[in-house]
Amino acid sequence: MAGVIPSRIGAQGVKSRRAVTEPLWVRSLLITLALLFIALVLVMPLVLIFTYALQQGWAVYIASFTEPDAVSAIRLTLITAAITVPLNVIFGVSAAWAITKFHFRGKNILITLIDLPFAISPVIAGLIFVVLFGARGILGPWLIENDIRIIFATPGIVLATIFVTFPFVARELIPLMQAQGSDEEQSAMTLGANGWQTFWRVTLPNIKWGLLYGVILCNARSMGEFGAVSVVSGHIRGLTNTMPLHIEILYNDYQFTASFAVASLLVFLALITMVVKAIIEWRTQQTITTITDDTLLLEK
């Protein structure tokens, strides 16, 4: 399954004491090297963003995202995410249901197609919609005749964002629901529940953590997408600028403080996403450990 890193939700952490390990100096050296690498590539950029964002004080920091262009960029980003995330959630749940609960021919092809946007450059994600709907694109002349604007307007931005974040929810749910099987759903049906009741009361509680992680990741990516959106947006200030595009414009205008201030908002979003993920992983590991402990007790 290409382009996909399975999240470790539902996976059990391994804690084993090892009798064989490296001498202390080797361990210290390896840990130092790894931490140095993480510091240079990941930690320093984070520190820099907040330092630059706050270098002219709180007033300037706050003003950077309360001025009209920033507000309209934030609004467009929120609108885009508000359309993208629910659509991809509905798609993700229904794709996962169809794929994990039924047999049909061509299932692997469908899974590969769902993964495809992960493997495709975001610029190409933008390009395909320009080719379809752009002024000189395949449907361009017809759209101009009927005065419909997709490229250099909100619909294009939403479409490109949906494409880029298309697999997130489905990809999170498919392995989870595959591992869980459908015994519980079948029992519910046998006991007289209808399809919706089975989904809401049996399936959903089982997949809620995976679903939540899929949603927050899909949301973070839809708010932060740059490449695809930059191709279809046209960079019209106050109209078709999302937050990442606004950051780009400020940066190219040498307004570094404002640029990093807006960027820091997206950093907060990314950090929240990571914290939620860590909490979910911790919680699911706890449940699994309790369950295994219980089974062990029963076996004794």
Binding site: E248, L266, A270, M274, V275
Partner: peptide
Amino acid sequence: VDALVDLPFALPTAVSGIA
């Protein structure tokens, strides 16, 4: 550190770019 490894998945590319 374990949590930080995921940062590039969640951090917008434009933000890591300017940083």
